[in-house]
Each structure stands twice: as structure tokens, then as C-alpha cells.
Design a protein around this nucleic acid. Sequence first.
DNA 1: ATAATAGTGTCTGTGAGACAGTATTCT
DNA 2: AGAATACTGTCTCACAGACACTATTAT
Lengths: 244, 244
Amino acid sequence: MTDSFIETIQKSKNSASGSPVHSTVLSCYETPLVTVDIVLCTVIQNQLKVLLIQRKQPPYEHMWAIPGGFIHVGETLEQAASRRLLEETNVNNIYLEQLGSFGQPDRDPRARVITVAYYALVSAEKLHLEAHANAEDVKWFSVNELPELAFDHHEIVQMALAKLKRHLESSSVAFQLLPEKFTLTELQRVYELVLGKPLDKRNFRKKILASDILKDTGETKMEGYHRPAQLYAFTRRSPVTQAS
Amino acid sequence: MTDSFIETIQKSKNSASGSPVHSTVLSCYETPLVTVDIVLCTVIQNQLKVLLIQRKQPPYEHMWAIPGGFIHVGETLEQAASRRLLEETNVNNIYLEQLGSFGQPDRDPRARVITVAYYALVSAEKLHLEAHANAEDVKWFSVNELPELAFDHHEIVQMALAKLKRHLESSSVAFQLLPEKFTLTELQRVYELVLGKPLDKRNFRKKILASDILKDTGETKMEGYHRPAQLYAFTRRSPVTQAS
DNA sequence: ATAATAGTGTCTGTGAGACAGTATTCT
DNA sequence: AGAATACTGTCTCACAGACACTATTAT
């Protein structure tokens, strides 16, 4: 894993500098390491949540961090991010969008580490929460109650949330946070959670229905002692990914 | 420079795999290399241009590529990009915006190289063209007449142009392509070149002036045998950098 | 007078936002 | 009947786009 690999590199670096080593090897050690880090979001209990992992080693021991890790040989950046999410959540093919790269020289006190950050969206329905229900070191945090984060992860999370907001309005990423069939009220809640503000029901429905990305499934959903709601689905399977 | 360093790494890698080497060293060689690559744009002779450099070594020998290179120790990603632009153009503090990272495993046939791409904008006025006027291996190409590019640089350039288009409409990057004082017609030309379509003069002026990012300098500019034009300047020194 | 570009205003359609009452289901 | 949520339409305002003529300068 990431941490132990950095330790090894660090030790090699120290021993290298103390002994006569060919300059090529030295410049190899000066090469920055590359990781991917992922801000995975979902909606649980009417809250927008981010997946965090509690660190077990210094630096930032016991603090929370977003999942991430090194890129394997032959893997694309996106595959590396996807693999880390699979390892952490047991869910495959999670929607990913590249955020950008973070490369402040001092962002990791151990070594020069450049990270390519992604944000990712899953619907709560796809999460097999049992898989990590007992793991005290992997938790979903509401974006309103984030703990202090390790490294520059706070900045990365904030950028992810900002980008998600922008994407929500120009593309159809919201659907990644919902099951295949959903009610308009559920869709509106997702928008409200991400945008952080209430929306007018009539205007929301008018706009969404006019955009023609939804189709009425004909089915309805009963919940509680009141009128049942129509269930809708996306017309496109893959959303319009009009990047940043 | 980039190419020679990759050669050295490659030789070390080959010799390493043939001899008993400690596994740490091996994993070091498997670590991807990181570069920055920059799509530098300007407007010359009423055309949107991109700076390209002709390669002198294989792979892609004699083909054109965008400027780029390794990150030095202690340098941020942006500083590395900025330094490469200074080296290539003799201009400091060129406007930079991160595009994203490109990490296909086979994008460089020699080694695993992940690049963080930037787009950059300079006004032609700042370019000391003499500096490289004789250099046959560094040239400005019109975006309409780009040669075949090395590596995945075609994809990077296309993404840069697309992002520039989007940014043009939501922020005020156009100003980076103009001198401090400019006429509304000059500003409109920049918009037309980047967007690749003609704009209505009255609507353009109405919109730009309403956005309140321009101030009339009171000066005028005479050019040819006709009515002189008002010169404008930005109200903000640094543009609203509402990222992707 | 002519050439050449600078500069200016109206109308129309579209989309966003404010706003309140009826419909349907179950207890 | 009451509770709870689903569902629906109008008006206003701001912005985008189509569109044509006058103003100023030098030759």
C-alpha cells in the first residue's frame, strides 16, 4: 500500500545519500512519486457524504484521509482510481471524473508525491455497506461535518464539491447518485444537497422535464400514507460528460 | 532535458533487469515519471496560434510537440510549467491554467510518463520573437494548420482549445491574449478566433460593456484612414479564474 | 465625395424565478 | 375528516440573438 511503499523509498533514499551511488540512481530517487486520490460521494440519509479512511501510520496518524494509492504498472490513472474504489467499497465501475493534479512540493512530508485527484459518485443502493460495516477505519462523513483531513485533502475535497456543483448544472451527473428508477422529489433532493440550497418544486420539474433527459417509467412508488409518486429513469445510460 | 533523462532511466532499467538488484530499486524504476506539458496560445496575424517544438530524437523524431519537461526538486507543477515557458519564450509570468493529467500507460514508448497538462496564454506584444526567430525548431502554428503531433499531444491541444472556449465565456481570460489597452474590435476578434465563429458587433459590445469588466481609458487608437477607436482596459488586474 | 471602420438601439423569443392550490393515497 | 406528499400553470424579468444606420477620420 501507499504508506509502506513510501517508507521503503524513503529508506533507500537515506541509504543512497550516505554511500557512493551512480548519479542516475540518485535522479531516480528525485523523481516525484505519483498517486491517485479519490473523493467518493454518495447520498445517505438525506445527506451528501464523502468516504474517508483513518490513517494508521504517521504522518497525520489517526487523521482521516480520502482513499488513494499508487498507480500499478500498465494501469491508466482512471483504472488505478477505479481499483482503489473497488478495494474500498466492493463496487465496480464507479463513475469517475478527473479533478486535477496537486503537486505542492511539501504536501507529503515524507517524499515528493504528486497526486491526480478524482471525484467519484455512487448511489447508496450500490453500496454493500456490510463489507465495511465493522471497519472502524472507513467511514462516510457528511460534507457538513468533515473532520480535519490529512495532507492537502481538505483542499481536494472542497475542489471536488465545487466541481460537482458546476457539473450538476451542465450535465447529468446527479443520476449517478440515484438508483435506476427514482421520483422527481428524490432527484430534487440530490440537487438540493449538492447545491446546498432549496429549490422550487415547480420550477425544478419544469426545467428537468424540459431538458428531455428523463423518461416516465409508468411505475409508481408508494412511501408512507400519501399519494404515490411517478418513477422516472434517464434516457441516456452514460451521462453527457461535458468536462470542466 | 526531458529526452536525455528518459534515455538514462531507460538504460538503468535495462541494466537493472539483467542483474540481481534489490526489489526496492526495481519498484523505483517502475514508478512513473512525471512531466508538465504546456499548450501555449497567442494571437498573431489575426490567427490563434500554438507554440510547437520540433523533436530531435526518436521517438517521433522530426515531429512537432508541445513544450514540456520534468519537474525540478522543490518546484510546484505550475512553477515547472512557468519555467519551461520562460526557457522557450523568454517571457515571465505567463498565464497558466491546469488542464488535467494524461497517463495512458503507452503514451510514451520509452517509459511510463504521466504528464500534467496546462494551457497558457500570452499576448503577442509580450513575445520577443527575435529570441527564437532563427530557431527553426520552435514555431507558432495556427490552430487551423497544426501538423501531426508527437505522443498524445494532439489530444492535449484539442482539450486545451476546448477548455479555452469554455473559459472564454465564463471568465475573462481573453484579456491575457491582448495588450493592456485594446479596442472593442480587437477584443471581439479574440473571441471570434477562439470560438471559431463570427459574432454580432452590437450584441458583443452590449454584453461585454454590461459585464462591467472594462473601463474606458479615454484614449483612442488610430489605424488607417477611418474613425479612431476607443481604448479600453480591464478593471481587474487578475482575471476571475473560475476554474473548469 | 469616397473609403473604411467606429459606434449605437429595438424587438422578439427563451429561460429562470416567484408564487398557491388541487389531487391522491392511507388511517 | 385529516395527514401527508404528488402534481400542476402563470406572470414577470433578464438575457440572447437578429437586425441597419449614423459618425468620424483621412485621402
